[in-house]
Design a binder for these strands. Structure first.
Lengths: 149, 149
DNA sequence: GTATTTGCAAAAGCTTTGCTGCAAC
DNA sequence: GTTGCAGCAAAGCTTTTGCAAATAC
């Protein structure tokens, strides 16, 4: 399991003003299983603050992103153009998206870390965000494809 | 320089019906310098076929994508949510996007290829598309940032 | 001649914005 | 008491879609 930051503590440490709405959303993101889009986060956050507005959700996501506290994913645009969010992990990892069944797998490996160091060094580039997404077929879906004529 | 496929030849080989509109767009993509979004491609393609419609551009892009002839990029959403397109290269490569000046750099390394093989093997995943994007500051912009208080 | 593709115009999907009043500190 | 934030509603940007007419083979 990848270790993730505690967003509320980190927000406080960073001096981010914690309104009830931000608290509601941050707790929602922290407890979210899987990767959720803004609309889903909004619906869940309303269980904690029934009046929280979509716009507030978007604005808070933007804030957390700027602070590098969450990562934004596209997940190969498997379901439209929306974005998905996850708490930043200690280790960089990549996402495997299956075009067949839509399942998302996460994967971390030292090779990825090595690649990151190599990029930073060779390009003299100061890396802030890194997003590696892979689309294809998971084992099960690849096997099914094979079976068809 | 990364070697890219000849799209028109490949389209013919794949039995893709080559209408004048598709020809116009394919030639445009092939000759494009840098990474262009759908709107820019449309404007350029109109120089070859003045009546080509936006919708045709989107439909053809979708077609070429399905055939794995072009890659779609987000380039860290540096300028809104549009997508950018490039002819598929022989070698996988990644994109470095500078949040300061907006410059996009391409980078290919054997470590990336190794990572790809490792992912496919460890996850038993059949990879079709791989998109590695990095956001941060290029050397010049990082130095400028440093200079400020 | 027939199946596919196009242009057009409209809609859809997701996100951002301007403004006024409210909340945090 | 100030400053910044939230809610609301509207607009924005990019992409998709339905359909009749045109085109490729």
């Amino acid at each position: 399991m990848l270790k993730r930051h505690d967003l509320l503590i980190e927000a406080a440490e960073r001096g981010i003003r914690l309104t009830v709405q931000r608290r509601a959303l941050i707790e929602t993101i922290q407890e979210a299983k899987g990767h959720l889009d803004a609309e889903s986060l909004w619906k869940l956050a309303r269980k904690r603050d029934p009046n929280i507005d979509r716009a507030t959700v978007y604005r808070t996501i933007e804030l957390l992103k700027r602070h590098g506290m969450i990562d934004e994913l596209d997940l190969m645009h498997l379901n439209g153009e929306k974005h998905y969010y996850e708490v930043k992990t200690q280790k960089d990892h990549l996402h495997l998206a299956c075009f067949g069944c839509g399942k998302i797998e996460e994967f971390a490996t030292p090779t990825f870390e090595r690649l990151k160091r190599e990029i930073a060094k060779k390009n003299e580039f100061s890396i802030q965000v890194m997003r590696l997404e892979i689309g294809g077929l998971c084992r099960r879906c690849a096997a099914q494809e094979e079976a068809l004529p």
